[in-house]
Nucleic acid binder design. Structure first.
Lengths: 126, 126
DNA sequence: CAGTATCCTCTATGATACTG
DNA sequence: CAGTATCATAGAGGATACTG
């Protein structure tokens, strides 16, 4: 898997177009980051600079509750890491990212078309 | 694809365990239902008895905006149906359902474990 | 470093009633 | 039949400040 850069997580980042989400806004990105290996809290913060500590914590709790990650899995290890279940989920999640990339143009076009139609509707009403 | 029965959509239905969702609560089920062929509003209501007309409409608007469904696609046809993009998405969505079914026990166990831990935490605090 | 605590706003969803 | 309109509530998520 390609290394992720912080810019990946901009406001206009491709994840905003993902047709499928996890419960938590930052969860899917967190999964991808953790897919690169176990990491402590501070590194996750650096990887997701647009997230507050509170939100990051909430996302981690949520993923933990669902059994996708663990805290300090290996004794003497670093903070958070994927469980086997989490790794399995990540595979599927990456398929979703791939699907999105493949259909990117269609997705963008559909939204633009819909927004234009809404615009036309609005100006006709006024 | 196996035919869907209304009971599939109970409160405790498996979809509540889906680790991945679409933006709208009813959207993924709607996709599955529409995967069985184009259908009018009234049939969709019957298929999703726990949804109000308002919520169903909102889900349909959302799916339409994203280009996954259309209204009255074929001239003289029935209400709503999947677009090619929607059909492509449905394939992936079914993979998600399959993944969930395959990992069902692990998912349930993880949540029960987490809830028990929270319980223990709560009683220790009080 | 690894979080927790507060305050605030916006959205999703439900329940219910109404309309062309 | 195929929706729209209104009211009300829970939770998501952002911003900011604080703690062991």
């Amino acid at each position: 898997m390609r290394r992720l850069s912080p810019e990946t997580f901009d406001e206009l980042c491709p994840s905003s177009m993902l047709p499928i989400r996890m419960q938590n806004k930052w969860a899917p990105l967190l999964m991808r980051v953790l897919g690169e290996g176990p990491q402590p809290f501070s590194e996750l913060r650096r990887a997701l600079p647009r997230t507050s500590a509170k939100e990051l914590t909430r996302a981690l709790r949520s993923l933990d509750r669902d059994g996708f990650i663990t805290r300090a899995a290996d004794p003497g290890s670093v903070g958070y890491g994927l469980t086997p279940l989490g790794q399995s989920l990540l595979v599927m999640l990456l398929d979703v990212y791939d699907w999105t990339a493949e259909h990117w143009d269609e997705l963008v076009d559909a939204r633009e078309r819909a927004d234009r139609a809404e615009q036309a509707q609005a100006s006709a009403t006024s």
